[in-house]
Amino acid sequence: MEKINEAFELLLKTDRELFQIIFVTLRMSFFSTLISCLLGMPLGILLAGWKFKGKRMLKKIIHTLMGLPPVVAGLIVYMLFTKYGVFGSLNLLFTVEIMIIAQVILITPIVAGQTLSVSSVGAKNLLETAKGMRLSNFKIAKLFIIQNKASLFSVVLTAFGRSIAEVGAVSLVGGNIQWKTRVMTTAIMLETNKGNFSFALALGIILLLISLVVNIIASAIIKQEEEE
């Protein structure tokens, strides 16, 4: 117990740096989630409702990529953006932007796969009805989103959780640079490497609290909308 107290005292002392780390973490997770959902959800909906050539293959690829190890996603991005890599001239290595790119590669398949699985049944029924009513594809997609709002929302939260808890890819491409690309998970990793196990654990608890707060706010927004 004494050790935990000590850890929290230390936390307060380093609060300015801690707030900066939390800010970077939230910025990264927000954009990773946003972009992955913008790419993954349409893909998932497309796979759930529409028939097209190569659909089964695409499904298999997405399901395989859902198990992509974060380090591998990081490695791929690293090799593309390294000094002599294809995109080396962009000078993006060790920035928050590249951390978002790596996470988008990692999370988009998860969003697509989950969107597909939460909506396969509903999509078929909806599609049949909509065809009978001769609705345009755009209108069908819109109807679909409204109908599956709750489950799509849980997909967003999964993406966010994945992003905020991820360490393998972001430490590799972000570099865990103090005051720049250090996020909560890489800070925890660093404190563990230093041997400050209780401080690392305290940081872990803070990370969970942040996740909890984000979840509560998000649920409140959704609930309010449902009531309206």
């Binding site: 390294t82 103090q178 660093l190 490497n193």
Partner: peptide
């Protein structure tokens, strides 16, 4: 001070990762 001196990169990683970073930059 890593906060104000932007040339001083505090990486918080192992030797191999730091060397790679130095090489890149």
């Amino acid at each position: 001070d890593a906060e104000t001196a932007s040339w001083y990169i505090s990486a918080g990683q192992g030797m191999g990762a730091c060397l790679t970073m130095a090489s890149e930059q």
